[in-house]
Design a protein around this nucleic acid. Sequence first.
RNA 1: GUGGGCGUAGCCGAGGGGUUUAAGGCGCCAGGUUGUGGCCCUGGAGAUCGAGGGUUCGAAUCCCUCCGCUCACCCCA
Length: 424
Amino acid sequence: MYRVPRGTMDVLPADQPYWRHVLETAERLCRLYGYQRLDTPLFEDASLFQRSVGAGTDIVEKETYNFQDRSGELLTLRPEGTAPVCRAYLEHGMHALPQPIKLYYIAPCFRYERPQAGRYRQFYQWGYEAIGSMDPALDAEVVEIAWRLYQLLGITDLVVLLNSIGDPQCRPAYLKALVAYYSAHRGSLCRDCGVRLEKNPLRLLDCKEPQDQPLIQGAPRAVDYLCPECRGHHAQVEHYLALLGVPYQMEHRLVRGLDYYTKTVFEVVPRDGGSQNAIGAGGRYDGLIEELGGRPTPGIGFAAGIDRIILNLKRQGLTLRDGSRPQVYVAYLGDRAKDAALRLTAELRAEGLNTLLAFGDRSLRAQLRHANSTGAPYSLILGEDEVQAGEALLRRMEDGEQERVPLTHVAARLSQAVASQPGP
RNA sequence: GUGGGCGUAGCCGAGGGGUUUAAGGCGCCAGGUUGUGGCCCUGGAGAUCGAGGGUUCGAAUCCCUCCGCUCACCCCA
């Protein structure tokens, strides 16, 4: 039997209310803060992600879905959303529009990884990007939106973690200090950290091995190595966050896995931890547009993992049910009645009534049982007698009350009856 | 890529070498009402017990291999 490919999922009707809840909330926020939707292709030129995310990062090095099309073009299924947005910004000359440009997307992303709780090979991100301003107040607003999202969704016990990782001016000095510090303790490091020290020193800071925790505590902090500009920026971000009343926690171990981040980085995580814990993350990327061939242009953005948000909503015990149900169910008995039922159903739908027609020539008992399970407040019953008389039986499911209605008046009568019903 | 746990009908789930012809519940179908739902009752369909191989007189049950799912590591949303 066929199954979904590893790490992918079907979003079944029963889950759709969760998705709707999250997406509607996200889009409401985007309108509130002036972001406009941008849809980009599922795949991009492979080199776009190598240039932006970083050729040496795990995401690009071993997690991308790459393929060649028939012309030999090297393409990559997007592993994240920021680079495509920046590409579109450049491609469509958005620098000529009033800055900052505010764009958002809701997009499936692809990374070839071993799946686990809250991690899929095809996952969905809601992200927003503000390009063209380096105002620290914008950083604060971007964090605020993230915070508001989770509040509106009703996810509790979250914390915003904030850090600044500097820029190309000051980060080298910090990295040097970090490497020097860890090199002195090389012997006591866990195996992974030995590799990190060589390959990606920033990662040393979020090692989970208990043995390495004391080292992390004593490690140099990025904020202590910021250049005057970055330090000033960071102070302003904190100032504006306080002003906006967005609670946050400085987290000196917070680093990001993508090469393009500068200055402000932040994550939203559940307080009680969990493994794949970040349910949203973002940061500033002031060098990215230039790296992609544009003029030096600052930018900042955030992306939320929709799957992870829904996972948390469910863990928290939020239950959402699909409230949609037909307004009327049409049952029939016999071939002549079936003809009339099809005609009537079409007519009801033309009137805008959500109508479900019975199929399969089953017993009336079976049809009404089905009607009951759909939650339709009314059923219409068409038998030989009714068709003969040019009528239909309108049954109110709640109490079984029935009335005979001329076929020509059924739509009007139902519209009236439905209007008096409580909404779905 | 590495390590742990788990695979019995659509779903949940008993059974851990032989009366198992593989429980039970949910769901599905039908009947109990010559054309009337929910509750209740009765019946039915649906499983090559993840796949392949091995041990044995006998395997869902023991062993091996593979596959899948899952959790964790790496990494990340």
